[in-house]
């Protein structure tokens, strides 16, 4: 994990508590671009896993990836990841067959549960993979979603 990025974001978070407007002013784009976003430029699942420092993640039944079996519209695919692993620190979502598979990484703290719900784009029928980091260990689980119309254009 990139600690500098954490510090930057934490600063922003606490500022937001004082005043949302102040937070908006403090959040300089340069600081944000400094964040480690290498996983988002990685092509292929292996490269993404490497960028996330998640190679060799163990398959876990304690992670549930909830997504439709068949998605008619690949532009909007609802995905829910629930991790019942104690001390879940972060959940990352990867769409394996997308040109850029990395979808997002969600760092949880201060009582946030191992749960993330969002909507993603899938270019093709693909496995949607969740990568969970908990207590320095990495776990993963995936679910296949069949896509009839892709959502990444091109």
């Amino acid at each position: 994990m990139n600690h500098q990025r954490r510090t930057v974001l934490k600063g922003v978070g606490s500022a937001a508590a004082v005043g949302v407007a102040a937070a908006a002013g403090l959040l300089k784009p340069t600081a944000v671009f400094a964040a480690d976003r290498s996983a988002f430029d990685a092509k292929g699942v292996d490269a993404v896993m490497k960028a996330l420092k998640a190679t060799g993640a163990a398959d876990s039944r304690d992670i549930v990836v909830k997504a439709p079996d068949i998605a008619e519209n690949g532009a909007v695919v609802p995905v829910e990841v629930t991790s019942s692993i104690a001390g879940t620190d972060s959940i990352a979502i990867i769409a394996e067959k997308n040109a850029f598979p990395m979808v997002g990484e969600f760092d949880l703290s201060n009582g946030a549960q191992g749960f993330i719900s969002t909507r993603i784009k899938l270019a093709n029928t693909s496995h949607v993979r969740a990568v969970v980091k908990a207590g320095g260990k990495v776990f993963t689980a995936a679910k296949e979603v069949k896509v009839t119309i892709g959502g990444c254009g091109g």
Binding site: K10, G13, M102, S109, C152
Partner: peptide, 25 residues
């Protein structure tokens, strides 16, 4: 006042992003 979620996302999240999460306590 406490940060509960920090996310980095990319263009693979759908237009008009939806995000759901749960916070204990």
């Amino acid at each position: 006042g406490k940060t509960v979620l920090q996310a980095e996302i990319g263009g693979a999240v759908s237009r008009n992003p939806f995000l759901g999460f749960k916070v204990k306590g």
